[in-house]
């Protein structure tokens, strides 16, 4: 039995402890806004916020989560910074196919929660998720807009 606190709600789950958090979110809890991209922590499509840190959920076995608080894209509107990030994403018209964007928004939100005025260098260091549509410049513009 695993107990997880996701978006402020406790879930008791009968599931193998080595299951990656990503698949618990998507397949057990139906929180499909978090995406599976690579499964090896390379692409960042599965990024969630775990105790304030942008975290690639495909690399987190549920048994290691413990009491950590998990925030997924589904709760992005409940966070003041997250809301600003979403408005910037819409304002700059960032997404193309959109598949990586949940992870990008979560990474940006975690960055701005910790560092409200990031430099371009900070943005570059924090925003390492892959985007095959090539929206990187729009992403950087949106992060700057959300920080402003």
């Amino acid at each position: 039995m695993q107990t997880l606190t996701i978006n402020g709600t406790r879930h008791d789950l009968d599931i193998e402890g080595d299951t990656p958090l990503l698949f618990v979110l998507r397949d057990t809890l139906g929180l499909t806004g978090t995406k599976y991209g690579c499964g090896i922590g390379q692409c960042g499509a599965c990024t969630v916020i775990l105790d304030g840190q942008a975290t690639r959920s495909c690399q987190i076995p549920v048994e290691s989560v413990g009491d950590a608080k998990i925030t997924t894209i589904e709760a992005i509107g409940q966070d003041a910074v997250g809301k600003r990030v979403v408005e910037a994403w819409v304002g700059v018209q960032v997404p193309q196919c959109g598949y990586c964007q949940s992870g990008q928004v979560m990474a940006a939100t975690a960055l701005l929660q910790q560092n409200p005025r990031p430099t371009d260098g900070d943005i570059g260091q924090a925003m390492t998720n892959l985007c095959r549509c090539g929206t990187y410049n729009a992403i950087a513009a949106a992060v700057r807009q959300a920080a402003a």
Partner: peptide, 27 residues
């Protein structure tokens, strides 16, 4: 003009094939 799918794609609500579920399905 603004794209129609921007908000859904910025909030995780856009649905792709991988997100679909059908009653009683196996994996």
């Amino acid at each position: 003009m603004a794209r129609l799918d921007m908000r859904d794609k910025s909030t995780g609500k856009a649905t792709y094939a991988i997100d679909l579920k059908v009653e009683g399905m196996l994996h």
